[in-house]
Structure formats: structure tokens, C-alpha cells
Design a protein around this nucleic acid. Structure first.
Lengths: 266, 266
DNA sequence: CTGGACTCTCTCCCAGGGGGAGAGTCCACG
DNA sequence: CGTGGACTCTCCCCCTGGGAGAGAGTCCAG
């Protein structure tokens, strides 16, 4: 009594027979009994709730490995924390989706506004910086934490707007080196904050106006300019947040200087 | 001039070299020039905006085939409509995510509330119905439309709460037969609305209280009861929306009767 | 005891990439 | 004019989380 064939269990849990077999194979949901001779799987009714939890987690695109980890966690508190992590991940994903929608609308709007590019010889400068190797998708989160730490360490002693320096690999691959800074006369060394020297470079500079979601368009335009002016790109891209969230809460007023180290191609 | 190797193009578009090659293979983004001898791909700067659009669409999980369709649509209006379709799809997915989160929270909350199950001999009845074969994920949408049509055709002549009858395959596989009805003395035949007879059946009936997101839990409990009472399931599940959105907008007050056709197992 | 429904394992397929091997190419520097 | 290093080519296998179907074995009620 209370033992179900895979088909019955499938009907009760709304998981397909195939998927149940897959979960067995993955040691995610093992049948209560497996007939050693015939190989038939038999499930207990007490496994129905587990199957439903799996079903829901999969609906949330939680990887099977993580589902397994959650199910194997006996402590309900820890388990709730694991689930909360995934819900947070969903939130983040939602944010990225929203950003992509905004950017897409901007891209599809015919927007032939030409850009002004200035070639600038940027001398080396020493600043208060926080740097790390981060994953591309985590840049925004990392930036927020790093900049908060910089503000705390430098604050009013800043001699100009903040900026950043981002490895190209950050965008091409999954991870790359990133650095954010605040210029100041005497860079302190506190926590992750430390003095760093931005090397001198010849920069192709343009200014992106507005929130950052559509910044790709400006990047592309700058890239086009660089190529059409017979130049090539060398080294990480630099950004200066001339007017940013620390100055005004109106994203439309933000001004971001994008500088790409370039060199002339024969 | 204005011609880029795949690596340069990768840096300018933030698409990996591998992905660019894949897009070429998929005829999604063809290089401006391919050297016939070496096979080297060369891209034009004018392809940067296209690459960015692809990038954004992929961020929104638009399938490559649909990206291709969108890119090949010359009319901006039609193209905007295609994109809007996908944004709608994203909205729907978001709704399902929300529902799964709610259901998951309910599942993980230790909720050992025992359920009352009643065995009921349900005589055959003739009702005004709308039926179709639908995909599992489309049930909610389909239901809304069908019920609106039923309300329009029957309206105040209804002799009881609405209900539905859903093929088990609807949940196990991708699609299945679904029927929704309003009981009435003289079922009309208008549009998709037509008279239908629900066959007599022995039903194991329980009541789910609250919104539908957590109804799986009740389903599971009912399934457990059926099995533990040495019965088995035969035929599609029936639901009666005793108190539903047409009665009150407070989901917590909704009452849904779930009836599973059962038969006694020796 | 037989037929139909059910279940088993097996292989192949899909999207949308990632990773690496091994060979060929490009180009700037010496 | 070489040559070395960076770049690129193709090809094959891997990943996740399934779906489809073949061919054989099993269960059970009539």
C-alpha cells in the first residue's frame, strides 16, 4: 500500500515519466523501491511533496545540482536561505532583463545622432582605487560595493569625479579585471581601497548622456569612429562618471565619459 | 578601412569570438568579407549595431531563429511588433515565475494541515461548455477567454458555480484536453459554447482554499489520500470553482473543489 | 493464458553555447 | 627578409534538461 508505479506517480506529481527517470539517474529523486529483477521503479506517496518541490524549483530554473543541494539540506533554516539565494538570483536576472529591454528599445529606435569624439593624451595619474577580477554579470553589484567603500575612505577629499577601468575580457568572456577609483591628493590604504596609478594613454573620448542601460550604443559608435579613423584599440576601456548618481538622481542628466586607449594604425 | 578581424569585432560588440562564428554559421550575422583562401572572417563597422541588437535579443532569451526573423524584417513597424511579442512572452514568463515562487514558499512552509476528502457519486450532468486541446502553460490564458465567452452566453442563467475538467496528460505532457463549463438549464450553442455532458463518476473530492498558485499541494494531498485508501485514478480531474474570482476579488476566500474520478483497487 | 497497457534501456536529437587540439596566417620587430 | 607570437581556422566532444522513438520485457484483468 502506498506504493506507486512510475506512471501513477507521474500523474500525481505532474512530472513526466521521462523526467522522473532522469531524476532517478541524477540521484535527485530515488524511487522508494526498485525491483532488482525487472528494474521497475516504485515510488511512495511520501515522495509526492518532494517531487512537487523539485517541480517548482525547476520552474524557477534552479539547476538540478542546486535542487539536490537544497533537498539534501536537513535544516529548514539553511534550506530557506538557499532558496532565498535563488530568489535573489531571479531578482537580479529580472533587473538584467529590464536593462536589456530598455537598451533594445533604444537600439531599435533609429537614432543616428552623430557622436563627438575627442583624441586626448591622458597623462598618468595616481588615484584611490578598488580593483578585482569579477564576472561580467556581477559588475554592477561589485561596482556599488566598491564605490561605497571608496566614498567612505575618500569622501570629500575627492578632487574629481569617480571613474573606472575595465578589461575588455570582462565583456568578451565571463570574467575580467575591473578597477574603480576616486581621484584624491593622497590616496589612503584602507580595506580594499589602495593607491593605484592609471598609466598614461592616448584616449579616444566621447560622452554618453543618460542612464547606463543604453551605453552599448555609444560604445559601438565610438568603436566605429576609432576604426574609421584608422586607429586600433589597446588596453582596457576607461569610464569617468562626470555626472552620475552621486550628483543627481535624474539618470537623464548623467554624463559618462568613455575613453578607449588607441594607437594609430599605419 | 572600416574592416575588422573577428577579434576586433568581438571587442567592439562584446560578443565572444566563438559566438560570432556560431552566428555566421547560423546565417545570423554574416561577415562582410570572408577570405576564400584562408577562411578569415572580416566584419564591417556598419555591422556593429546589428551585432548589438542580436546581443540584446539574446539577453532576452529570444531564440536565434526568431532573432533572424526580426533582423530580416525590413519594415520597422512589423519589426517592433515582433519585438513586442517577445516582450509579452517575457511578461508571461514573469507571471509564471511569480506563481512558482508563491507555490514554492507554500511547499516549503511545514504545512501538515490534514485534508478532508469525501467520496461522492457524481451523476452525469449536461452543461454549457467550451473545450479545446491546449498546451499546459497556456491553460490560464485559454481559461480566461473561454470563461468570458461562457459568461457572455449563459450569464445570469447559470444554475451553479463554474467548473472545469482537465486531462491528466495536460500536466504530464505538453498538451491535453481541457473543458470549462457553466451549469445551466438549457445550454446554448454560441461560438465555442456548446452543450456537453459530464459523465457520471465516483469522485474523491476535497476543497482547496485560497488562490490557485498553491493548488499543487492539495493535489498531492488528494493523491496521497486516494492511494492510501486503496483506490486508483481513472480519467480527467474535475474542478469546481465554488467561490472564485467571479464571486470575490479576495483570493484568500476562494474555494475550489477538486474531484478525482477513482475506483477501488482490490 | 493472452492481449493490451505499462515499463525498461538504448540511442539520437534540440538549443546555445564552452573548451581544447592541431594547423594555418598575419604582422611588427629585429 | 625571417621569425615569433598573436591571431584565426576547422573539427570534435562536453554541458544542461529535456523530447522522440525503437525494441524488448513485464504486469494484470478478463
Amino acid at each position: 500500500m502506498g506504493v506507486l508505479t512510475i506512471g501513477e506517480f507521474s500523474r500525481l506529481t505532474h512530472l513526466s515519466v521521462r523526467t522522473l527517470r532522469r531524476y532517478h539517474e541524477a540521484a535527485l529523486l530515488e524511487p522508494a523501491v526498485v525491483d532488482e529483477i525487472t528494474g521497475y521503479r516504485y515510488y511512495g506517496v511520501d515522495q509526492i511533496p518532494t517531487a512537487q518541490v523539485i517541480h517548482r524549483l525547476r520552474e524557477l530554473d534552479v539547476p538540478l545540482s542546486d535542487v539536490q543541494r537544497i533537498l539534501r539540506t536537513p535544516d529548514p533554516g539553511v534550506r530557506a536561505a538557499l532558496v532565498a539565494d535563488h530568489l535573489q538570483r531571479l531578482e537580479d536576472e529580472l533587473d538584467r532583463t529590464r536593462a536589456a529591454v530598455v537598451a533594445l528599445r533604444r537600439l531599435l529606435r533609429p537614432d543616428p545622432a552623430p557622436i563627438d569624439v575627442e583624441l586626448r593624451a591622458q597623462p598618468a595619474r595616481t588615484v584611490a582605487a578598488v580593483e578585482a577580477v569579477v564576472r561580467g554579470r556581477d559588475v554592477a553589484t561589485w561596482y556599488a560595493g566598491a564605490m561605497a567603500e571608496l566614498e567612505a575612505a575618500v569622501g570629500a577629499a575627492a578632487t574629481g569625479p569617480p571613474g573606472g577601468c575595465y578589461d575588455n575580457a570582462l565583456f568578451e568572456q565571463e570574467r575580467g579585471h575591473a578597477l574603480v577609483y576616486l581621484p584624491t591628493a593622497a590616496p589612503p590604504r584602507t580595506g580594499r581601497v589602495h593607491p593605484a596609478t592609471l598609466p598614461a594613454a592616448e584616449l579616444a573620448v566621447t560622452t554618453h548622456v543618460g542612464e547606463h542601460d543604453g551605453i552599448e550604443v555609444t560604445y559601438g559608435a565610438l568603436g566605429t569612429w576609432v576604426v574609421e579613423n584608422a586607429m586600433s584599440v589597446a588596453g582596457p576601456v576607461r569610464e569617468v562618471y562626470v555626472v552620475g548618481p552621486r550628483d543627481t538622481s535624474d539618470p537623464a542628466a548623467w554624463r559618462t565619459e568613455i575613453g578607449w586607449p588607441v594607437f594609430r594604425v599605419t
